Amino acid sequence: MSANIDKTLAALADPCRRRAVELLGRQPHRAGELADMLGLSAPAMGRHLRLMKQSGLVEESHPEFDARVRVYTLREGAMAELKRWLADTEAVWVTQLAAFKAHVEKKPQ
């Protein structure tokens, strides 16, 4: 498993960060909006967003009119490597379980 997948899974391990990903999947949000929606303090939300940014899940931008405001969006393709790994892992399990089922259902001769 690659370091990128490890970072992604570590970022998604926290329920607040998973909820933030769900919210950002609908539309971009300011950090303060996310904090309000998740019932978190601004510093706590900042820590979550910093970790999500370091893991490559989110990107931040600043509106032209106010550089103090940070708007967060999901980074396109951020979970592509994780999706591939999950698909590969699922394929292995499907093959293994199908072989096990065939073995169990095999009638003795």
Rank of each mutant, 00 (worst) to 15 (best):
A13Q: 05
T89P: 04
L49W: 00
R19I: 01
P43L: 03
L34A: 02
S2G: 08
A31M: 14
R17D: 03
A91C: 06
A35K: 00
S41H: 08
Q109S: 14
G46M: 07
R84Y: 14
P28C: 03
D66N: 15
L74F: 10
A42D: 14
H48G: 07
E64N: 15
P43R: 03
Q27F: 06
D6I: 09
E64W: 15
K53L: 12
E105I: 00
E59K: 09
T73K: 14
G39C: 06
E90K: 09
D36W: 14
K53P: 00
D36E: 15
F65P: 07
M52Q: 00
K106E: 14
D66F: 14
L40Q: 02
T73F: 02
V69S: 05
G46T: 05
G56C: 13
P15E: 12
W85Q: 10
V69P: 02
F100G: 07
R47Y: 07
M52P: 01
I5G: 00
S61K: 08
L97W: 10
G32R: 08
D66E: 12
E105M: 11
A98D: 15
S2P: 10
T73M: 08
E105V: 00
C16K: 04
H62M: 15
F100P: 05
G56T: 15
C16M: 06
R50P: 07
A13N: 02
D66R: 11
A35I: 05
D14L: 07
R84H: 14
A13S: 12
L49Q: 04
P15S: 15
E81A: 13
R26V: 06
L38Q: 04
E22G: 05
R47A: 13
D14R: 01
L12H: 02
G77L: 03
E33Y: 01
V71I: 12
L51M: 10
L97M: 05
L86T: 09
L97I: 08
